[in-house]
């Protein structure tokens, strides 16, 4: 049950996207998200979608896994899509009392649906192809400038690393505890909502107890190895920019310029 979650999962590989520097990937992801929401006509939307799909293919990860992460937000996408059909102006295509479907509404619906889907796809690309430790390392590097405001960037990054590291451990633990309570006849699948919430107690309490126990053990282990924060620490794996990253950046720039140009030349269909 809990094993079906693909969001945030890292899938090792050697594709071009896997080999990109994590910093490049994070910055490009942010840029792509900005531009997918900037794309205001069908040409630029198509351009962004095509590029995102190309990137997805380049990861050489089975498309089924992407579909799985899309499935999680399917309901949200459909709901916003449908709501948007009725929210728009322009030529009226169909009318029933207060409800009317307009050309603008249909455009809105298509844009919202595609934008969210692409957003999830390219975010999955980042988490699928970047190991959690690379990800937090890169975040630490990117946020480094904040340390002049006395923000402890290293500590935040360390907390994130630990949190990410322990997600699978806690999932496994949840699985084990659920099995143990099910073996004692705990009924998690039937009954009304209050009954179900009550049924979670035998799982949540042991889970919290073990999370605190693990945190305590980990803190002791770190102290035993004289861990003392970020000053003067070196890394085993050093992030470095390569020709590949340069290529990725230039390629993306061209796409972004394309989106801007098409936005300027062609009238926008959505706001």
């Amino acid at each position: 049950m809990v094993r079906n979650i693909t969001l945030g999962q890292f899938i090792p590989g050697h594709s071009v996207i896997h080999r990109l520097d994590a910093r490049t990937k994070i910055l490009l992801l942010i840029a792509y998200i900005v531009f997918i929401f900037c794309a205001a006509n069908y040409i630029s939307l198509l351009m962004m979608t095509a590029v995102s799909l190309a990137v997805v293919l380049a990861t050489k990860i089975k498309f089924r896994l992407y579909l799985k992460s899309l499935k999680v937000i399917l309901l949200v996408v459909l709901l916003t899509g449908i709501l948007n059909i009725f929210n728009g102006s322009g030529r009226i295509l169909w009318e029933l009392g207060l409800i009317k479907i307009t050309e603008g509404g249909i455009n809105n619906a298509i844009f919202v649906t595609v934008r969210i889907a692409v957003l999830v796809l390219i975010s999955s690309v980042l988490t699928f192809t970047t190991s959690p430790s690379d990800l937090t390392d890169a975040l630490e590097k990117i946020l480094k400038p904040l340390s002049i405001f006395h923000i402890k960037v290293h500590e935040i990054a360390m907390m994130m690393t630990i949190a990410l590291r322990f997600i699978p451990v806690l999932l496994e633990e949840t699985d084990k505890i659920m099995n143990a309570q099910k073996a004692r006849g705990a009924d998690l699948e039937s009954g009304n909502i209050f009954y179900r919430i009550k049924a979670l107690i035998p799982i949540l309490i042991p889970l919290f107890v073990s999370a605190f126990r693990r945190a305590n053990d980990l803190a002791t282990a770190m102290e035993c190895r004289c861990y003392n924060g970020g000053v003067n620490r070196t890394r085993m794996k050093v992030l470095c920019f390569s020709g590949l990253d340069l290529f990725g950046l230039i390629f993306s720039m061209i796409i972004f310029v394309g989106v801007i140009v098409s936005n300027l030349c062609i009238p926008a269909v959505v706001r």
Binding site: A180, A183, I205, P206
Partner: peptide, 12 residues
């Protein structure tokens, strides 16, 4: 009946 490995972690 099933007693799991490290069953003490199921106490609540």
């Amino acid at each position: 009946g099933m007693v799991f490995q490290y069953p003490e972690y199921q106490l609540f």
